[in-house]
Each structure stands twice: as C-alpha cells, then as structure tokens.
C-alpha cells in the first residue's frame, strides 16, 4: 500500500479544488451548494485516508484475532458525525436558496445583484 505514496492526498486536493472552483466561479446558488458538498466530501476522504493503516482492517474486534492490526477509529468517528451534520447544514443552505428565489425571483448571483441595486 505504501507504493501509493502521496497519490491519495493529491487526488483529494484535486477534488477539493474542483469543489472550490464551482464555489467561486459559478453564479448559480444550487451549483454553489453542490460544489460545497464536493469540497466537504474531499475533506472526509482526506481524514479517512489518514486513518488507514496498510494491511489493517476495520476497527471491529474479531474473536481470537490478537495479531490483527486495526485502522485508526478516531477519524471514522469524526467523519461519521460530520456527514450527518453536513447534510443538516446543507438543508439550511438550500432553504436559504428557496427564500432567495421567492424574494428575488432568481437564484443567479449576478441577477440578484442587479435586482438589489
């Protein structure tokens, strides 16, 4: 597994930058939230990658397995809760988008700016 080196981290950075680009370059608010979700998931992958031990197994004890090495459970716990919190906060963002649509009649950033001038 060490042959992989830093590939996972670079892939994570690529995904992170794709999400970041969607967030700053696109004017559509729903697209921005999708970009935020891509970014968020890349952070999850970063954490889980750090917790992985080569040749390890999931941190659930097996009977009689004294010499089994387990992957680090702490990142798993952190990310497990972060996923559910992430969807809850996305819901808040999406409801803000709905209210913006009702108030301005559009969810495109530049049109909202024109309207509020």
């Amino acid at each position: 597994m060490t042959a992989l080196g830093l590939f996972n981290y670079w892939a994570v950075i690529f995904l992170m930058m794709v999400g970041f680009y969607t967030l700053i370059a696109r004017g559509n608010l729903v697209k921005k939230i999708i970009g935020l979700n891509i970014f968020q998931t890349s952070v999850f992958i970063l954490y889980i990658t750090m917790g992985k031990i080569a040749g390890g197994t999931a941190p659930i004890f097996v009977k009689g397995g004294e010499d089994v090495s387990y992957s680090n459970p702490i990142p798993h716990v952190l990310i497990l809760t972060a996923i559910v919190v992430g969807v809850a906060t996305s819901a808040v963002g999406l409801s803000l988008v709905i209210r913006i649509k009702e108030a301005f009649g559009t969810i495109e950033e530049d049109e909202i700016q024109d309207e509020s001038l």
């Binding site: 998931t41 889980i48 659930i60 992957s71």
Partner: peptide
C-alpha cells in the same frame, strides 16, 4: 465505496444513506 476500501465501514454506511 472508497470508504469501504479504506476500512471505514461505519462512515461508508452513513455516506451511502445520507449522501
């Protein structure tokens, strides 16, 4: 699926159900 490969079965479960 990637989380399963990385031994994080609980996380994979949550991501599949939520995401």
């Amino acid at each position: 699926a990637l989380f399963v490969v990385m031994d994080a079965v609980d996380v994979a479960f949550t991501e599949a159900a939520v995401g």
